[in-house]
Nucleic acid binder design. Structure first.
Length: 258
DNA sequence: ATGTCTCCAGGATGGAGA
């Protein structure tokens, strides 16, 4: 089973690039972030034509996540538990029913958190505390799961081409990275790092300042796997070349093969 | 040194978010 994550930075702006990549990569399941669309305006037909079941958790202008799956989706839930006041569309879950596995797939768009300090950073850290609680609950019930998406976290210096540029940024602040480590240390596996070591592997290049041409990137899109899912990991790769195409998102897809 | 893209309101361009 091939499962991908892709922050598309606006579905309307990616109506050509997204199906092109889907046709080529042929993922069975995809979690999307930053669809920047309400559910009613999401171009589901374009995806259903390709054999995907489509579940969205949209919002006007900002945020918005979705799950696409060629396999049946069950028990879809929207919104990260733990704060009834939070109306930002950043979390969707569904169970993907495969031949020999019922996998809970969690798609997430973790808050950016800048500027630091400030209310947006407080929101990011609070959101990560809720994420931790959700992971603990899934582990406690021994549900096979993965959490994939745009974490807006640079885990280590080697995950940035120019780490010194990010020292004061919400994506790389010690408090942010500590929250990431607490999550991983529950017993989750960073799928990419389970397969590939060393610097130079990025999933995001800013549109500004020629970041792509200079390969000034960061690795912020991640898959975290529960123990039984980690046992099934066969591959994890980043589709880097997607960034060099026409009308690209600033993120590229990352995927796992289970 | 600077550099961009997307969305929306509103009806032109500018602000917000990233």
């Amino acid at each position: 089973m091939k499962i991908a994550s892709f922050n598309i930075n606006g579905i309307k702006a990616r109506v050509a690039a997204l199906p092109d990549w889907l046709d080529e990569a042929q993922p069975d399941v995809v979690v999307l972030q930053e669809i920047k669309s309400v559910d009613e305006a999401f171009p589901r037909e374009m995806l259903e034509e390709r054999g995907y079941n489509v579940e969205t958790h949209g919002q006007k202008s900002f945020n918005g996540v979705a799950i696409l799956s060629k396999l049946p989706l069950e028990d879809v839930t929207r919104g990260l538990p733990g704060d009834d006041e939070d109306d930002q569309a950043r979390w969707i879950e569904a169970t993907v029913v495969g031949d020999d596995l019922a996998l809970r797939v969690c798609g997430l768009y973790l808050p950016n958190g800048n500027p630091v300090p400030g209310p947006k950073y407080e929101y990011k850290l609070a959101w990560m505390t809720r994420l931790q609680a959700r992971a603990e609950a899934l582990l406690a019930e021994e549900t096979p799961f993965l959490m994939a998406g745009d974490y807006n976290i640079i885990p280590q210096a080697e995950d940035a081409a120019k780490p010194d540029n990010w020292r004061e940024d919400a994506l790389f602040r010690p408090e942010s990275r500590a929250a990431w480590r607490r999550l991983v240390n529950l017993g989750l596996t960073d799928a990419f790092r389970a397969r590939t070591q060393g610097p130079g592997h990025y999933s995001f290049w800013d549109y500004q300042a020629g970041a792509w041409n200079r390969n000034n990137g960061i690795r912020i899109d991640h898959f975290l796997l529960s123990p039984t899912v980690a046992d099934r990991l066969r591959a994890c790769q980043i589709d880097r070349d997607v960034r060099g195409r026409d009308k690209p998102s600033d993120h590229v897809p990352i995927w796992v093969e289970l």
